[in-house]
Design a protein around this nucleic acid. Structure first.
Lengths: 174, 174
DNA sequence: TGAGCTATATATAATTA
DNA sequence: TTAATTATATATAGCTC
């Protein structure tokens, strides 16, 4: 009713040149938004195509962000071991010699082993499972049919878990 | 030939669910297009914000593609040396660093929160549960303890589901 | 495989709360 | 600084060649 409604509230998105932003604050905001978008795109690529990917980003303030499907280190490990075979060739083209590279590769391996032992990712996962209730909540929105389907999935998962638990020689009685 | 071609030439872009594509050919095409898009976005992020980034992608056919600003290896080196140091501290049981490490986890959480909102639509949710396997996969990375915790969660969920199912007067036999 | 072509879905720049 | 809003720029799904 009110005539003010008809006015454009914002000028909307403007076209920008892809060149270094000078304003510190907009650089920050843009980085934040676009990093999110980038990771989302990567995630979609992985899900849609069954691809695996890792992204490492250093923000303008040199803060580290990363993404990995299934996780960053696995992908990077694959990349490094794959490319290490071409160490000679690479050292010719890059400012990095083979030895140095190999050393870093071994460090990475060590780290991976460590990480596997500590299962840092899994720890995160476990925390996720234990602290979030969105799946519990979500069942409230399901129809009977959907619930039924969902339970089949859960049941399958349970079976797999028990199978997995067996491997770990755990005693469970679900 | 005739003028009826003022009709829409194509149906245009359609909304798709973010779930694994089954057709091999469309998987390839989509991968190709989206990988290009991803790298472009990364490039823009770097230019606009003065960020540094590296991306490593394995295609569904396990072919390697990578992107790096200024180049992949430099970024990955930084990442590895950064996290390796970190890994050492972690192995010493430093909980402060664990928190730092958890920032990635929190990023993931944020994304999941976003997903949650989207998935509020129960229809999508149901399909999600039935078509995605990331949780099944993820249990491979868990330690015994974590598995145990996880199973407790699942068990709880199962209980809730059964409770819920009761409301729907469904007969279940889990 | 790859290169256009729409029509539409998404991302996001500018702005406000 | 963290979020909404909104108008617009971009990315892309489905086709065609």
């Amino acid at each position: 009713m009110n005539m003010e409604n008809q006015r454009k509230k914002t000028s909307g998105r403007k076209k920008i040149e892809i060149k270094k932003l000078d304003k510190q604050t907009s650089k920050q905001v843009t980085f934040s938004k676009r990093r999110q978008g980038l990771f989302k795109k990567a995630s979609e690529l992985c899900v849609l195509c069954g691809a695996h990917a890792a992204i490492v980003v250093f923000s303008p303030a040199d803060k580290l962000y990363c993404f990995g499907q299934p996780n960053t280190d696995t992908i990077l490990d694959s990349y490094i071991s794959g490319t290490t075979e071409f160490g000679d060739l690479k050292s010719a083209g890059n400012s990095q010699n083979y030895e140095e590279y190999n050393k870093q590769y071994e460090e990475a391996l060590k780290m991976l082993e460590l990480e596997k032992k500590k299962l840092a990712d899994a720890e995160n996962l476990a925390r996720f499972w234990n602290t979030n209730d969105w799946w519990n909540d979500s069942i409230d929105y399901m129809s009977s049919d959907q619930l039924e389907q969902f339970m089949v999935s859960i049941y399958e998962l349970r079976r797999k878990l028990i199978e997995k638990a067996d491997e770990h020689v755990m005693k469970l009685n679900m």
